[in-house]
Write a protein that binds this DNA or RNA. Structure first.
Lengths: 182, 182
DNA sequence: AAGTACGTAAAGTTTTTTCTGAACGCTGAA
DNA sequence: TTCAGCGTTCAGAAAAAACTTTACGTACTT
């Protein structure tokens, strides 16, 4: 039964697609966009926006925004096809790199913002602590705040180094891509 | 000016609180819950739900759910105070551990789900491939799907090992907590 | 046992996000 | 130049999430 075989195949694909999509909120990706990614994943050809809309039963507009989200994370690439005016897209199959790009894009960004705010406030508080005569009560609160901020700063500097090790791929020295590899 | 000093202090705190909160969507944490975390961070005493609601100008119910979210991620702990019937909460100050717990709770969970789905579909497809007579067209699609799934599986097993290295704290051998530490 | 204080569940409201359909601008073809 | 096909912007509709109010169950107090 040809149809039966196809059903098995598609069911197997759909399970994967749906599961992956459901867990992609960790990447800040919405479920529908996750489904789009999954759909592209099992395509041996690149897809156009119309084909995606067809496959998911959604509007072309949604496909456009979804595909852009995925491109921002380097999970999908635009492909040049001569002879057609439509844009073609296909998945970037290097999941390791996807993971790394995610961290680069999102976590690095947050990390920098946080470090900046922490440093700025830390400096203000240190100045306050040194230049002004503080009541004991205020002084204690300032001290505590400084301690908390220094504590957080230390962590974010660590996180930054961790992200460095992802970006440089040094992490693979520590956690190799394949388990039993020399 | 006592009031002026307090203003400087509070502004410094608020900058940190707001920045941290804003970037906590990476942890799957809503901004208000992030603000709650930040508020607790600069408290040298534990807080009750009522105090939190007071501090943030929000309902006690919201504080209840917010604090639960933070507890699920081990970012906040419930403290026993004798003499009062109210629950008291305070932040867990070990940010490294917070980060690790986040990965344990969320990423590990997603990882396991995905591995499970990938393995199940992989097995189905391998069975299909071996036991049935397939048309060439179907056979190719099955082969491609298997390749994609194996590829993803390899990545998730790596991710799983990465998370292991967080949970076991081995990661700190590779990326030390403090930069210039022997 | 009755009353009070507390945390949380449930239902409803408001706000935010996601999705769609229409309209626009651009590019290549006739 | 005009027209058709494409991706995207924009405004509005639908769906989801966050927040609040009300109500409930439990545990301590009297």
């Amino acid at each position: 039964m040809d149809t039966n075989q196809e059903k098995i195949l598609e069911k197997a694909q759909e399970r994967v697609i749906e599961t992956l999509a459901r867990n992609m909120d960790l990447y800040g990706i919405t479920m529908s966009t996750g489904l789009l990614y999954g759909t592209l994943l099992f395509q041996d050809k690149s897809m156009t926006l119309d084909e995606m809309g067809e496959a998911l039963g959604m509007s072309k507009t949604s496909m456009s925004t979804g595909v852009r989200t995925l491109m921002d994370l380097n999970m999908v690439e635009k492909i040049w096809k001569k002879g057609t005016r439509k844009d073609h897209y296909e998945v970037n199959l290097d999941w390791y790199q996807n993971f790394i790009d995610l961290f680069s894009v999102k976590w690095r960004h947050a990390c920098e913002h946080n470090v900046h705010a922490l440093k700025k406030s830390l400096q203000e508080l240190r100045t306050l602590q040194q230049t002004e005569e503080l009541t004991e009560e205020i002084s204690e609160r300032v001290d505590l705040s400084i301690k908390r901020i220094e504590n957080g700063l230390e962590y974010y500097l660590w996180l930054s180094r961790l992200i460095d090790s992802f970006e440089s791929h040094d992490i693979f020295q520590f956690v190799p891509k394949k388990e039993n590899e020399s």
